[in-house]
Deep mutational scan, measured.
Amino acid sequence: SAVVMEEGSPGEVPVLVEPPGLEDVEAALGMDRRTDAYSRSSSVSSQEEKSLHAEELVGRGIPIERVVSSEGGRPSVDLSFQPSQPLSKSSSSPELQTLQDILGDPGDKADVGRLSPEVKARSQSGTLDGESAAWSASGEDSRGQPEGPLPSSSPRSPSGLRPRGYTISDSAPSRRGKRVERDALKSRATASNAEKVPGINPSFVFLQLYHSPFFGDESNKPILLPNESQSFERSVQLLDQIPSYDTHKIAVLYVGEGQSNSELAILSNEHGSYRYTEFLTGLGRLIELKDCQPDKVYLGGLDVCGEDGQFTYCWHDDIMQAVFHIATLMPTKDVDKHRCDKKRHLGNDFVSIVYNDSGEDFKLGTIKGQFNFVHVIVTPLDYECNLVSLQCRKDMEGLVDTSVAKIVSDRNLPFVARQMALHANMASQVHHSRSNPTDIYPSKWIARLRHIKRLRQRICEEAAYSNPSLPLVHPPSHSKAPAQTPAEPTPGYEVGQRKRLISSVEDFTEFV
């Protein structure tokens, strides 16, 4: 048969007729292969192709491409040299491709048809291009793949890379869960390890502090508590009631339409708007009261037996805890006409967050109470924005700035309102402590230090009264110190430094 060459192609190359033996071998191979691939376009007849790359030819070592076609129900084999250009295909004639002069020997084609199974398996396991790669995943090629499931790999992101949580363990979102698992493993320790309690022994800490320079003076030496005195035992138990972190309780009120001037209507609300609910979820963490331990979680007086509701929101960081007394989460009882059960919590909070959804101005004093010092007013606006402002009593104007209003988005509203309420509550605590000038409020841990110092002074006084020969370590507060001759004046800087060093040991009130 003659071949018409394309323009620009090399000279004529004689194409030899395939021997009958080659056709029989390739026909047997075509019957084993699956003929249901995917359909081509209507211009080209339905056909199945599979590209198999052999590394070497037997005796020649030339890479070839073998295409199996099922045109007219008769499979045909096409061998081509890759750099050459194939002729145009037609549905009426068999596929013809040019070969190099080196394939002119018909014996070479017979060798190609009689490829060993080793070469076929190696060509099938190679990388296939384009559409033949999808075909190689079918059941027909499963014989050339190794048996057994593939090893499982770690989760992959859409980009093909490992997620960040699997790369950096410290930033993994499941870090707290692993800590819980470690605690569970520790709890399952053997009885021999049960006595080993991690941490620092208080006796060891005391020993280090006792021999430090801070205890060089007799006034700073630790003293032993009497065991037989019940009054001192009660004082030590009272110390446990003062937490070592700051605590805040903040009221949250929802004002519906037409309720801006009605205290009873505001306290009777059992739910609010959708934006109000989203605002609550951002204030803190939802907790169930019956599962809380009052000595570990500050509840601000809420009952854990269901008297004040089942849930509330709280927030904490390293040095403070805040609980929100939310009116809509507290039960509304029919027998309580004046809502006294709610007001006994909300009316005693220094700061209230008022979500004013009424469309009218909310005035300070609508919720009557002796300790309502500051109101954080949240007014929802259009386009997911809110107006946040402050209202306070006249005696609080020096501590709280009420002249600045803020426009905040719904997303950042819980954070801004919480921070403003916490700052206002700190100012309210300082303002409330002014009624007792001898006990200015600095912080909870300073209050613990003052309680310890008062307890020490009482013990020293009782020891001096029981044994008059012992001198008083600290003179009583009601006694007057003996007159001392004025010492020589020293520079102001040295006096300030000495006073600062003494105050650092005794108390921190002056620095606050």
Rank of each mutant, 00 (worst) to 15 (best):
L225Q: 13
C292S: 09
G300W: 06
I353C: 01
Q497R: 13
Q259T: 02
N227P: 10
K249R: 10
K480M: 10
C305T: 15
G282V: 01
S443H: 06
Y355K: 00
V335M: 12
S219C: 12
L501P: 14
S273A: 02
L455S: 09
N412I: 02
Q429G: 05
Y276Q: 00
L302R: 15
D308M: 08
L225E: 15
V416W: 05
P482N: 14
D336M: 06
R450A: 12
N261M: 07
K337P: 15
F371Q: 14
S403E: 08
D240E: 08
P414Q: 01
V473T: 12
I266D: 03
S352N: 04
K394I: 10
K333P: 12
H431Y: 14
I326Y: 02
T328K: 02
A464I: 11
G359T: 04
F415G: 04
A481E: 13
R448S: 12
D291W: 06
V408A: 03
V416P: 00
F350A: 03
P414W: 00
S477C: 11
A483P: 09
E263Y: 05
Q370E: 15
E218D: 12
G369W: 10
H431C: 09
S433G: 06
K249S: 14
H431I: 14
P482A: 08
I250R: 01
D336L: 10
E257I: 05
S466N: 14
V376N: 01
K290I: 06
G300Q: 12
G496C: 14
D295H: 07
T509H: 10
H345Y: 14
F415M: 05
L455N: 11
G284E: 04
I287M: 11
T247Y: 12
K480V: 13
A421Y: 01
P226D: 15
S260L: 04
N386P: 00
G272Q: 02
Y274S: 07
V376C: 03
V378S: 01
D308N: 10
S273G: 04
L253I: 10
Y493V: 14
D357I: 00
N467C: 14
T312C: 11
N227A: 11
S504N: 10
H338M: 13
K368H: 09
D334I: 14
G256C: 02
R500C: 13
V335W: 12
A417G: 01
F373D: 11
E288P: 09
L387N: 04
S352G: 03
I326W: 02
E263S: 03
C314N: 11
A427M: 11
Q259P: 02
D349S: 09
T281W: 08
P471Q: 11
F350E: 02
V388L: 07
G284I: 06
V430L: 06
Q419C: 08
L283D: 00
S352F: 07
S409C: 05
E397N: 07
G309N: 14
W445C: 07
D336G: 14
C314Y: 15
